[in-house]
Nucleic acid binder design. Structure first.
Lengths: 189, 189
DNA sequence: GATTGACAACCTACCAGTTGGTAGGTAAAA
DNA sequence: TTTTACCTACCAACTGGTAGGTTGTCAATC
């Protein structure tokens, strides 16, 4: 296998492990079994678990940012954009996976500082996008003018992360969308 | 030390560990250090980590249910009750702790089935209380009659769990209350 | 076009430290 | 005299990580 194939496979399997059992609970041995190379060989691609963890967040964030940019360009009203944003979470849950940074945030105190910083950064990127989307929604008149975009962004992110967590625990992904819809409706004019 | 003292101390320290680093990441060695008895002695009180985990949830739920009952009896309108409910989460975050079952839910796939069931049960208890509170709010006229209490309960729980997660990751507990207030306002008449 | 050297990708074999858990003993309380 | 609460001393299994060797690919050199 080429470098990129293996590296990509490692990242993909590691992500899936983190999003189900958490960062602390997954091991190089698990990963080795899934990807089909020896435990020691993983260290060739990612010298430490921390470096793997960081690469994981970086690659996830990169993908997510690309999706957000695409979403920004679609001709949708604010409501439509927010619902489409929420679908990222719904889709993850359907695949029986927690949102990555939600899963990581829960064990934050255990994470090495470099990873903690990245999780925080990840959330700020999301909040920025939401805030901007809401702000332009206020200008275009389809979001209530009386609310602070900053706070509303926090509300949308919180609801989706929380709904994912609850849906995950109840093993019922269908609970996310109604929650999101309710929030989005309450923000719209 | 008496049985109860030690047992209580073990539960308290274990809870604090789970709520910060997660279930997978804390060990009997950590606990031994904090409580001041040898690692092996912990097994006298809790033969397995699973039994400790289960006792943890049980005791947490018991306390929480008592608080919920007290809250139900207070002479508050629905809004007041929901805000007071939210304060449990705010208080936890102030002490730099995640909500217990939020922390556990994130690593759910790693938990033994007996614990998974308890986490699920815990959320259902919360949803029941919220639903009932909202239902009586509809009757008394201070909650919008058009919304389904079942869905609204899910929304409130999700928002609080999510807001806790985000606040925890951003190390800023002040973000919870505005999110809750926004949701509660959107449910009120 | 064959030979060489460098390097990437993997391997086996190992390491010290930690994990949850057990066996069996002691001292004190009931 | 039995039971409770704790102890020391151990265990196999697993943790992330290292050392050093083998193999295949690929480019520069003869």
């Amino acid at each position: 296998m080429t470098t990129m194939d293996t590296k990509t496979a490692l990242l993909a399997e590691a992500e899936s492990l983190v999003r189900t059992v958490g960062y602390a609970a997954f091991s190089y041995a698990d990963l080795s079994e899934r990807v089909g190379i020896r435990k020691a060989s993983i260290h060739h691609h990612f010298p430490t678990k921390e470096s793997l963890g960081n690469a994981l967040i970086d690659s996830y964030l990169e993908r997510f940012q690309a999706e957000l940019a695409k979403l920004s360009e679609r001709r949708l009203d604010t409501k439509g954009k927010l619902l489409a944003y929420g679908d990222f979470f719904v889709q993850g849950l359907r695949d029986r996976q927690m949102p990555l940074c939600g899963a990581l945030a829960a064990d934050a105190a255990y994470l090495p500082p470099s990873m903690q910083g990245r999780v925080e950064h990840f959330f700020r990127i999301h909040l920025e996008w939401l805030e901007q989307t809401l702000r332009s929604g206020v200008s275009s008149g389809d979001v209530r003018a009386d609310l602070k975009p900053e706070r509303a962004a926090l509300l949308v992110l919180s609801t989706l992360q929380g709904a994912s967590l609850v849906a995950w625990a109840l093993k019922d992904p269908s609970t996310i969308r109604p929650a999101l819809k309710e929030v989005v409706d309450s923000l719209a004019t």
